[in-house]
Computed example of a mutant assay.
Amino acid sequence: MRRLLLLATLCSPMALAQALIEVESHALLRLPATTDVLLVERLSIADNGTLMVPAGLTEIRVSELRLGRDARIAIAPSERPFRLHVGRGEIAPGAQISARGASGSRLKQSLPGRTLSIRLENVTTDALIVDARGSAGAPGYVGLDGADGKAGGCAWGQASRGHDGQNGGDGQTGTAGGRVRVEVPQAFPLERLQIRLDGGAGGPAGEGGSGGSGGASTGCWLYSADGAADGRPGQTGRAGAQGAAGDLDLVRF
């Protein structure tokens, strides 16, 4: 019931600046996609809890942030940049801000790691992970099997060779890591930040199709025909290339 009340508060534009968001331990809370900018007075995510940020949300401003051990802010992939501004807070070991890319398919475009801008003003942490890695490329398509040959007739004709299988498609290139800008005070220990910007792995190669079976031999009373050769299997495609690494901009203020 309490969570429903919180969501109702978030849906009210007049109350956004005073909203309290709490995520319980091992729980998941998805923010509603009702605004581009969300103003939060206090955001608390308990140990192993996850806050899901929809793709349409482009900025969150938090006056006070509390992230428990292995807590996570998961930002949905999008081509639009995202900004997180934290006034003060405490971040436990293992906590992370995740904005990884999304794998695509032959019908859906893959997305790279999201472009992020994170400003931490008065924040203490032993280690904070920012994960904006790219996604894996889509796999290559599987080649079609070759059609079977026709058997020879008893009166005339000869068996036909099986058709060759189609070659498999190449895997797509993995998407790039995100572009991340982190703003921290002069005294902030940079070694406590772990920024992951690797490009995604290339998509696996598609398998070639099987060759069709050759036409069968026939043995008739007046006439016989030899069988035909099978078709060749298609070749396996090539694996996709690794995606490019993202960019990091560290700024002290």
Rank of each mutant, 00 (worst) to 15 (best):
G137E: 02
F82N: 09
L193P: 01
M14W: 14
N167F: 00
L16I: 10
R42H: 06
D131V: 03
Q109S: 04
G101I: 01
D70E: 15
W156I: 14
G162C: 00
V182P: 01
T50E: 13
L111S: 08
N122Q: 11
Q166C: 05
D126F: 00
I75N: 06
R100F: 02
V123M: 11
Q242G: 03
G104E: 01
L67P: 10
L6G: 14
L4P: 06
G94M: 09
R2L: 11
I91F: 13
R196Q: 06
A19N: 07
L4G: 15
A225L: 10
G211M: 01
P233K: 08
L29N: 09
G177C: 08
G227V: 00
R3P: 00
S78T: 12
A136K: 06
P77Y: 02
R3C: 13
T115K: 08
T124M: 10
G243N: 11
V40M: 05
F188P: 14
F82Y: 12
G219M: 07
S78E: 13
R114V: 09
I97A: 03
A136G: 06
Q158I: 10
R69K: 10
G211C: 01
L190R: 05
R69W: 11
L144Y: 00
E41L: 07
F82D: 15
R181E: 06
F253Y: 07
L28S: 12
T125K: 10
A99G: 14
A225V: 11
T125M: 15
L128R: 01
K150F: 01
Q235T: 08
S160Q: 15
E22N: 10
H85Y: 09
L65G: 13
Q242P: 06
G206W: 11
S224R: 09
G140V: 06
R252T: 15
R88Y: 01
T218Q: 12
M14S: 04
Q109D: 08
G169W: 05
F253R: 12
L16M: 07
I129E: 09
D170P: 03
A8L: 09
F188N: 05
Y141C: 12
P139N: 09
